[in-house]
Amino acid sequence: MLTKLYDWVDERLDITPMWRDLADHEVPEHVNPAYHFSAFVYCFGGLTFFTIVIQILSGMFLTMYYVPDINNAWDSVFYLQNKVAYGQIVRGMHHWGASLTIVMVFLHTLRVFFTGAYKKPRELNWIVGVLLFFIILGLGFTGYLLPWDMKALFATKVGLQIAASVPFIGNWIEVLLQGSDIVGAQTLARFFAIHVFFLPAALLGLLAAHFIMIRKQGISGPL
């Protein structure tokens, strides 16, 4: 049944080469932790992707309860964490997962750096990777405000103060991010939009570019 369905689609779209290319490409020994235990450092990239998947999924589910509004944000977070079944776990996945993503992306960057994998011809992929790193930091910064608790508000105030003290364009950045002259209702709405739509869109686009480039260029050889 499934085979028939597959054949039907394959007849029309020739999908076999698309995934066979990915499935059958040879993975060299030097990145395989089954042969060299030290090769586990090559897992950091994959684990970063895994944590990002967890972040996207748990984030999607959290927005089923979360309300980005200063009167309800905190109450909705309190409710989903304490009153909804498994709320602690789902929020925990997003909260602790955020920290883990940063750790993993950091380790992955260090691995690529210390194995010199960013050298010719992989310069472009390194740039995309660094941009991904910045986007993930941006997701961390905007996500920190969303529960609308004390530390969220005051840390964001400090963060925006820092942005405001950039010469020439500082105030402009501050108002643009803040949406108003104080950190308040409009800031929360903006940070929500940035956190949930703008940055993830950029993240997904760059991730796709990252993976396509890896596939096209292959894994860097052993040292």
């Binding site: 998947v53 967890i54 999924l57 748990s58 589910f61 089923m64 989903l80 909804v84 079944a85 498994y86 709320g87 776990i89 789902v90 996945m93």
Partner: peptide, 15 residues
């Protein structure tokens, strides 16, 4: 492992 807590979280109003 990933989805079980999330799905239970989402269907909570039903239960």
């Amino acid at each position: 492992g990933m989805l079980m807590p999330m799905v239970r979280f989402a269907v909570d109003p039903l239960l």
